[in-house]
Amino acid sequence: MAVRGRIGLRMCTFPAACIGDRKGTMRYLKSLAALALAAFAVMSLAAPANAQPARDLGFSYIYNKPENAIGIGVIYKWEGSPNYHAILPAGKRTDSYLGWQVAQGFYIGPGYCADPYYYANGRWHWYGVTVSNGKFRLATDIPGESWARNEVRDLRRC
């Protein structure tokens, strides 16, 4: 687009630049930047076409009972995990304290034992084992429950 002005003929790359004032050019650039930012925000919210629903790992948490008085090692994803991914203090849950959507196990260090429990059908159930000096894999999908709720109780020296 060419505009004939006092200086002569000039080429305009921005429509506002043809006005001949800086305010018009800056207004145009600000509008363009705002539009680009809005488009980027909308595009970043869209899930990729091959995204899997988060439910694949299940929804689960581990609660380290306050009575335990010390932290336990917690495992986010079991496969290929080290002994634990984080320490969960007594009285905390992996979903609210660590922000995890899933917790697949826990670790008890040498010289300690603990009893794992899960919630189903309106009450807490003991897993039937006492964990000592090692990792324990927890249920992450309990039929009839939207979350697999797990607790570590009675952490003690053994």
Results as ranks from 00 to 15, higher is better:
Ala86His: 06
Ala86Tyr: 14
Pro48Ala: 12
Arg137Gln: 15
Tyr76Lys: 11
Asn133Trp: 08
Phe40Trp: 10
Ala114Gly: 04
Trp124Gly: 02
Pro143Cys: 04
Ala120Met: 09
Ala69Tyr: 11
Tyr28Cys: 06
Ile75Lys: 03
Met26Asp: 15
Leu29Gly: 00
Tyr118His: 09
Cys113Lys: 08
Ser81Trp: 05
Thr140Pro: 00
Pro110Phe: 14
Gly91Phe: 10
Trp100Lys: 02
Ala103Asn: 05
Ala17Gly: 12
Ala49His: 02
Ala139Leu: 14
Val74Lys: 02
Phe136Cys: 05
Met43Ser: 14
Leu29His: 01
Tyr84Pro: 01
Trp124Asn: 05
Thr94His: 11
Lys92Cys: 02
Gly71Arg: 15
Trp78Pro: 04
Leu88Val: 06
Tyr107Val: 01
Asn64Arg: 06
Ile72Tyr: 08
Val74Gly: 04
Gly20Lys: 05
Ile75Gln: 03
Glu151Arg: 15
Pro15Val: 06
Pro48Gly: 15
Glu151Asp: 12
Trp124Pro: 01
Arg93Ala: 04
Val129Lys: 10
Trp124Gln: 07
Leu138Arg: 09
Leu35Val: 13
Ala46Asn: 09
Leu45Lys: 09
Cys113Leu: 05
Phe14Ala: 12
Tyr97Lys: 07
Leu37Arg: 08
Ser31Tyr: 05
Gly71Met: 05
Lys23Trp: 12
Ala33His: 02
Phe106Thr: 02
Leu37Cys: 02
Gly20Arg: 08
Pro82Glu: 13
Arg55Tyr: 08
Ile108Thr: 01
Arg149Glu: 11
Phe40Gln: 10
Tyr28Ala: 13
Ala36His: 03
Tyr76Ile: 00
Thr25Gly: 04
Ala51Lys: 13
Trp126Tyr: 15
Gly122Gln: 12
Leu45His: 10
Arg93His: 05
Lys30Val: 14
Leu32Val: 09
Gln52Trp: 09
Ser96Gly: 01
His125Thr: 08
Ala46Asp: 07
Asp115Gly: 02
Gly71Leu: 03
Asp95Asn: 13
Tyr112Ala: 03
Lys30Leu: 15
Lys135Glu: 00
Lys23Ile: 08
Val42His: 02
Tyr76Trp: 15
Ala38Leu: 15
Phe14Glu: 09
Val131Glu: 04
Asn64Gln: 06
Gly99Phe: 12
Leu57Thr: 12
Tyr127Pro: 00
Pro110Thr: 09
Thr94Ile: 04
Ile87Trp: 14
Ala36Lys: 11
Ala49Pro: 07
Arg123Asp: 09
Phe59Cys: 00
Ser31Ile: 01
Gly134Trp: 10
Ala139Phe: 15
Lys23Asn: 11
Phe106Leu: 03
Ala103Asp: 07
Asn64Leu: 01
Ala139Ser: 10
Tyr118Met: 07
Tyr119Leu: 10
Phe136Pro: 00
Glu67Arg: 13
Leu35Thr: 10
Ala103Val: 01
Ser44Ile: 11
Ser132Arg: 13
Pro15Asp: 09
Gly71Ile: 02
Arg93Val: 00
Asp95Trp: 09
Tyr112Met: 07
Gly122Pro: 06
Glu79Met: 11
Ala39Leu: 15
Tyr119Asp: 08
Gly134Asp: 04
Asn50Trp: 15
Ser60Ile: 04
Leu45Tyr: 13
Gly99Arg: 03
Lys23Thr: 11
Arg149Trp: 03
Pro48Asp: 14
Ile62Arg: 02
Asp141His: 11
Gly20Val: 04
Gly58Leu: 05
Gln101Ile: 03
Glu151Val: 03
Val42Glu: 07
